[in-house]
Amino acid sequence: MTKQRTGLGRGLLYGLYQNRLRRGLTKDVVPGHVAMIIDGNRRWARQAGHETVSHGHRAGAAKMREFLEWCDDLGVSVVTLYLLSSDNLTNRDGEELSDLIEIIAGLAEDLSHYRNWRVQHVGSTTGLPESLVAALVAAEKRTAANTGLHINLAVGYGGRKEITDAMRSIVAAHHADGGSLETLADLLTPDLIGEHLYTGGQPDPDLVIRTSGEQRLSDFMLWQSAHSEFYFVEALGPDLREVDFLRAVRDYSRRQRRYGG
Rank of each mutant, 00 (worst) to 15 (best):
G11K: 09
L13W: 06
Y17I: 05
V29T: 08
V30W: 07
G32W: 05
D39L: 02
R42K: 02
R43A: 04
H50D: 14
H50G: 01
E51G: 00
E51M: 01
T52L: 03
H55P: 02
H55Q: 06
R58W: 05
R58T: 00
G60I: 10
G60T: 09
G60M: 11
A61G: 01
M64W: 00
L68K: 03
D72I: 04
V76D: 11
S85F: 01
S86E: 08
D87M: 02
N88M: 14
D93T: 02
E95K: 07
I101C: 02
I101S: 00
I101A: 04
I101E: 03
E102F: 11
L111D: 04
H113T: 14
R115N: 10
Q120W: 01
Q120V: 14
P129C: 12
E130R: 09
E130H: 09
A144C: 09
T147Q: 05
N152Q: 09
Y157D: 07
K161N: 13
E162G: 07
I163L: 09
I163P: 08
D165S: 12
R168M: 14
S169M: 10
S169F: 07
A172D: 15
A172N: 15
A173M: 05
H174W: 09
G178A: 10
G179E: 12
L181Y: 13
E182T: 15
L184A: 12
L187F: 03
T189H: 00
P190F: 03
D191G: 01
D191Q: 04
D191M: 00
I193V: 05
Y198N: 00
T199Q: 06
G200H: 07
G200R: 13
G201M: 00
Q202T: 07
Q202S: 01
P205R: 08
P205I: 00
V208Y: 02
R210I: 08
E214T: 02
E214L: 00
R216Y: 03
D219T: 04
F220A: 00
M221Y: 09
M221S: 05
W223S: 07
S225T: 12
H227C: 05
S228N: 04
E229R: 12
F230M: 06
Y231L: 11
G237T: 02
L240R: 01
E242P: 11
D244G: 01
L246I: 04
A248K: 04
R250P: 06
R254G: 13
R254I: 02
R257P: 07
R257D: 08
R258A: 06
R258G: 13
Y259V: 03
G260C: 03
